[in-house]
Simulated assay, not measured.
Amino acid sequence: MEIPVFTLDSFTNLPFKGNPAAVCPLMHELTDELYQRIAAEINLSETAFITRIRPSDDFTKASRFCLRWFTPTTEVNLCGHATLAAAAVLFKYKKNVNSTLVFETKSGELLVTQQGEGFVMDFPLNPPTKQDPNEFRDIIKVALGGRPVQEVHLNSNTKKLLVRLPDDCDRSVLTSLKVDSAALECSERSGRVKGLIITMKGSPECQPGYDFYSRYFAPWAGIPEDPVTGSAHTVLGSYWSEKLGKKKLLAYQCSKRGGELELEVRDDGRINIAGQVVTVLQGTITV
Rank of each mutant, 00 (worst) to 15 (best):
M1Q: 12
M1H: 13
E2G: 05
P4S: 07
V5N: 07
F6S: 00
L8H: 05
S10D: 08
L14N: 11
L14M: 12
P15N: 10
P20S: 06
P20V: 05
A22K: 03
H28V: 01
D32Q: 10
D32W: 13
A40M: 02
I42K: 06
N43L: 07
N43G: 03
A48C: 04
I50L: 00
R54C: 02
A62P: 13
C66V: 06
L67Y: 09
R68E: 04
F70G: 00
T74Y: 14
T74W: 14
E75H: 11
V76Q: 01
N77M: 10
N77D: 15
N77S: 12
L78N: 02
L78A: 04
A82F: 09
T83N: 07
L84M: 12
A85Y: 11
K92I: 00
Y93W: 13
K94Y: 14
N96A: 02
L101W: 08
E109S: 07
E109T: 05
G116W: 14
V120C: 05
F123K: 00
L125M: 13
N126Q: 13
N126W: 10
P127E: 09
T129V: 13
K130A: 08
K141Q: 14
P148M: 07
L154V: 04
N155F: 11
L162E: 04
L162A: 03
P166W: 12
P166Y: 13
C169H: 10
C169P: 07
C169M: 14
R171W: 12
S176V: 03
L177Y: 14
K178P: 11
K178Q: 15
D180V: 03
A183L: 11
L184E: 07
E188C: 02
E188V: 00
E188M: 06
S190Y: 15
S190E: 14
G195N: 05
G195L: 04
L196V: 05
T199N: 06
M200T: 06
G202F: 06
S203F: 13
S203Y: 15
P204N: 09
P204T: 08
P204H: 12
E205W: 15
C206P: 05
Q207R: 12
Q207I: 08
P208Q: 12
P208R: 07
Y210R: 00
D211N: 13
Y216K: 00
A218H: 05
W220K: 04
G222I: 05
P227D: 11
T229R: 02
G230K: 01
S231Y: 08
S231W: 06
A232T: 04
T234N: 05
L236I: 04
L236M: 09
L236E: 06
G237V: 00
S241W: 06
L249S: 02
Q253S: 02
S255N: 08
K256D: 10
G259C: 02
L263R: 03
R266W: 09
D267F: 12
D267K: 07
I271A: 01
I273N: 01
G275W: 09
V278F: 08
V280Y: 15
T286W: 15
T286P: 02
T286F: 15
